[in-house]
Amino acid sequence: MSDTRTVRAARKAQVDSFSCVACGCCVPSCPRKAISIFKGMFATVDTELCVGCGKCAKACPAGFITVSEAAQ
């Protein structure tokens, strides 16, 4: 019997770094400490640590963070 389960890529947070204001609201919201502010310019996500929970997306006042299936 063949395995019919579809393999889906892991969901990861993605930051619109062009628009991000680097306010840092997202940083303390991450339970995995996966998000940080890169040199005061924009937020960056460590995809190794990110589990795609979406807490940072909720914390971002401008909605510049989305959680989607990461491109492999």
Binding site: V21, C23, K39, M41, P61, A62
Partner: peptide, 24 residues
């Protein structure tokens, strides 16, 4: 809107981000 919506257009925040972008 969200609690810290002011931070999105705060002039001090915009200014410090511009300084950081110019430096880096």
């Amino acid at each position: 809107y969200k609690p810290r919506s002011w931070c999105v257009f705060c002039p001090m925040g915009t200014m410090t981000q511009l300084i950081c972008k110019a430096k880096n």
